[in-house]
Design a protein around this nucleic acid. Structure first.
Length: 350
DNA sequence: TAAACGTGGGG
DNA sequence: TCCCCAAGTTT
């Protein structure tokens, strides 16, 4: 079962050889067979970017990062602010902070070489069980289970696992280990994820064209679309707050960097109030603040946010120069705040 | 262990 | 409009 010729591994790899999705960080099955090895740096970078993030969203970010920082030494030498600016808009900003920490450990303490085993990889910042397994399997041919959301879904269907997530996670990891072949474990992992992304989808799985239909217990029982079972979700509360966009006569902007901990940690943005049910206005200074006509609405993982945007033109000389300021360097919430300030009929000369 | 942590696209 | 969810990790 672990020789790559088991009913599941063999069928899946055959399917993958014909249908593997093309991605900038991936070496095709044919090139891989020809001896080409994926660059561990690119595998690591892509896997971190792909955490809870779609392939479509990652593509451009991956290109920009690898163009600017082609290897781990280059990234390790980057300024924090430059990395945060390049990451802006991709979300989960702890990933960017840990990415830089990890690059510096690898560059400064590991001679620029990534560890080759999952347990060693998992000691690095921002690398958990999934990413450690993915790097070990894809970059270093380690036959370890690689379990992401796709694989949880595929395996729960293959074996008709009724235990709800996340309780089922250990069980699914064990089942994945049982079907992971010693040959081409990296391709197997990527094949499982491709299958989950394109055929064994959350809704309306395309069982009729699935290469594993003959091995799928859930399909046999007619319950594929009902798996995996999941624990009920909590409702999202709505919080409110104020944001302040101050601009001087030259168009320079008042920005502040948030502390590394917590929501949007380490990112650049506009000063504001607390976010709560009844926030207190918190202008950074006295001014003729005028409110933008439309509220900014934004939804985070665990709450909705409504922000009232206030703008003022003031005499500020410690602001960020307008030429230095690009809205694209801000997280999406703050881009929305900037846009709301622009759309208002307000004294903004930027 | 459960909660915190972003964003954009699809149904 | 709203909910789901996407190659999870950290605390």
């Amino acid at each position: 079962m672990r020789d790559g010729k088991g009913p599941i591994g063999g069928s899946l790899l055959k399917w993958y050889d014909a249908h593997a999705r093309v991605m900038p960080w991936r070496v095709s099955p044919a090139d891989r067979a020809g001896g080409m090895r994926p660059d561990p740096y690119r595998v690591w970078l892509s896997e971190v970017m792909l955490q809870q993030t779609t392939v479509a969203a990652v593509r451009d970010y991956f290109h920009r990062f690898t163009e600017r920082w082609p290897d781990v030494a280059a990234l390790a030498a980057a300024e924090d602010a430059d990395v945060m600016a390049q990451w802006a808009g991709l979300g989960y900003y702890a990933r960017a902070r840990n990415l830089l920490k990890c690059a510096r450990v690898v560059a400064d303490e590991l001679s620029g070489q990534f560890p080759q085993t999952a347990p060693e990889l998992q000691k690095l910042p921002g690398i958990g069980p999934y990413t450690a397994g993915a790097i070990a399997a894809i970059a270093f041919d380690a036959p370890v289970p690689v379990v992401d959301g796709n694989v949880e879904r595929v395996v729960s269907r293959l074996f008709a696992v009724q235990t709800p997530l996340p309780t089922a996670k250990p069980e699914l990891t064990e089942l994945t280990a049982q079907i992971t072949p010693d040959q081409r474990p990296g391709d197997f992992a990527q094949a499982m994820m491709d299958l989950g992304a394109t055929i064994c989808t959350p809704r309306n799985p395309a069982c009729a064209i699935c290469p594993l239909i003959g091995a799928c217990a859930a399909q046999a029982q007619g319950i594929a679309a009902d798996l995996p079972r999941k624990a009920a979700k909590k409702p999202k509360p709505t919080r409110h707050g104020f944001a302040y966009v101050a601009v001087n006569a030259a168009g320079d902007v008042l920005l502040e960097r948030r502390p590394d901990k917590g929501l949007l940690g380490g990112t650049l943005g506009f000063p504001g109030s607390d976010w709560s049910e009844t926030p207190s206005p918190a202008p950074p200074f006295e001014a003729d603040w005028r409110e933008a006509p439309a509220e900014v609405r934004h939804t985070f993982t665990h709450f909705h946010l409504h922000l009232r945007v206030l703008t003022a033109q003031v005499e500020g000389n410690d602001f960020t120069a307008r030429a230095q300021f690009a809205p694209g360097d801000l997280p999406t919430l703050m881009r929305k705040v900037w846009d709301a300030a622009q759309s208002a009929d307000l004294p903004l000369s930027g």
